[in-house]
């Protein structure tokens, strides 16, 4: 199994450090939406910016709207990271 470069813990780190959630507030259930976690539109943008800025994954507008849950964010990021050619 290919090791996923972007993990749940990485996303949790973003939510704690950039959005201000406490560790306890980040659920184990990956199908919870960011909206259900109380993130407003700006906070969701901030999460996506973190992916861009810290992981180099820039997210075009049409993809951004499709990232609603924790699982979707993790999967999307890994998909993008793993599809980058290693030279």
């Amino acid at each position: 199994m290919t090791e996923a470069p972007f993990t749940y813990d990485d996303l949790k780190h973003i939510l704690v450090e950039r959005i201000g959630l406490s560790e306890a507030e980040v659920p184990e259930d990956l199908d919870i939406t960011f909206g259900e976690l109380g993130l407003d539109s700006l906070a969701i943008v901030e999460v996506q910016l973190s992916l861009q800025q810290d992981y180099g994954v820039s997210i075009p507008d049409e993809d951004a709207d499709a990232i609603g849950t924790l699982r979707e964010a993790i999967d999307y990021t890994n998909h993008r990271l793993l599809s980058v050619e290693v030279v």
């Binding site: 539109s41 700006l42 943008v45 901030e46 910016l49 507008d61």
Partner: peptide, 8 residues
Amino acid sequence: DPIRATSA
């Protein structure tokens, strides 16, 4: 830009 308030 990040909040997409301006026209692209």
